[in-house]
């Protein structure tokens, strides 16, 4: 079995809030998996379920072949975790915290620790609150990256890091992958995701709405078109797959689902095209759409190509396997 993490139909409520509402997640051995979604989508909650800090209400979760709740201690020898907001003990120096966390995980590569401290430009002698936000983050990062573990669970690990340090982090994760580590990386920094992630899962409101490689995600997307027309773009307005149409005199800009591109272009042609630019969406546009657009995901099946590269999450299978606990 090459799945390091496999979770399906995970639910978790906090009182009235449904933090996780049937979330699915599959992370394969050796990959860097991006875990994305808007604020409050449930990413941190899911990571804390994976760590056995929270107990899922229902659904099945397997981590490194074990049950994250039952086998927590055994599993934690094989993974390292970096939270997005690291708090340190006021009386302990950063170096002490790094060593302590490493020893509690069952070992730290001293040579690599030294190297990482240098690369991250961290002063390990400072104590607790004497560290800035970014430097606190580095303490946890060094402890995790220097640990000899199979799986890294990183929850917005670069929050507060400056761009230089972010680049160091990107290198370190790439090296970790080369060494065969598996990484689950929750992040809001798209450049980081684009550089590092083999596959991504996008969650919204506690559910997985997309999962696949970035290429697959791009495939399933819209093209931005700007055109100058001879006649008003009447026929475009109610054309299927066209979004955000704006007409400004004889100029129109709109986005169109890739599978409706041909249809939209022929309607454009009917209005007499004087000039036309089209470009693929930036990653940012892609994610903004997934984060915002209610139409994305399985709720709107006609938005995806028949037999397209990306597999929508199989909701039938999930309901069947739910409540396994």
């Amino acid at each position: 079995m090459s799945d390091v993490i496999s979770a399906s139909g995970v639910t978790k409520r906090f009182g009235r809030t449904r933090a996780l509402d049937g979330l699915d997640l599959r992370v394969q051995a050796g990959e860097v998996h991006g875990f994305l979604g808007p604020n409050g989508a449930g990413k941190s909650t899911m990571i804390r379920v994976l760590l056995g800090l929270l107990r899922a209400d229902s659904g099945t979760v397997r981590l490194l072949g074990g049950d994250p709740w039952q086998d927590a201690v055994e599993l934690h020898r094989r993974l390292a975790y970096v939270p997005g907001d690291v708090t340190l003990w006021p009386g302990l120096s950063g170096g002490e915290v790094i060593d302590l966390l490493g020893r509690l995980r069952g070992g730290l590569d001293q040579a690599r620790k030294k190297e990482l401290i240098e690369r991250f430009d961290l002063d390990p002698r400072k104590k607790g609150r004497a560290y800035s936000k970014g430097n606190r983050q580095k303490v946890a990062l060094v402890a995790a990256l220097a640990s000899d573990v199979e799986l890294l669970l990183l929850d917005e690990p670069t929050s507060g890091l400056d761009p230089l340090m972010e680049a160091v982090f990107t290198d370190c994760v790439a090296e970790a992958r080369e060494r065969g580590r598996t990484v689950l990386l929750s992040s809001h920094i798209l450049a980081e995701v684009e550089k590092l992630c083999d596959r991504v899962s996008i969650v919204r409101a506690g559910r997985t709405v997309e999962t696949g490689t970035l290429a697959e995600l791009r495939h399933l997307t819209r093209t931005s078109i700007t055109a100058e027309l001879a006649a008003p773009p009447g026929g475009l307005r109610d054309a299927p797959g066209v979004h955000g149409l704006r007409a400004d005199g004889d100029r129109v800009t709109f986005e169109v689902d890739d599978d409706r591109l041909g249809d939209a272009l022929s309607r454009l042609a009917a209005c007499g095209v004087r000039s036309l630019t089209s470009r693929p969406p930036t990653l940012e546009e892609l994610f903004l759409r997934h984060y915002r657009d209610q139409g994305a995901g399985p709720a709107n099946p006609d938005a995806r190509p028949a037999g397209g590269g990306i597999r929508p999450v199989d909701r039938e299978a999930r309901t069947a396997s739910g409540d396994a606990r």
């Binding site: 120096s93 020893r103 509690l104 390990p124 002698r125 104590k127 609150r129």
Partner: peptide
């Protein structure tokens, strides 16, 4: 002032 601490933990400092 909080002062500086050791750059690495003492050998015994590795348990809860």
């Amino acid at each position: 002032p909080p002062g500086l601490g050791p750059a690495q933990a003492a050998p015994g400092f590795g348990s809860l």
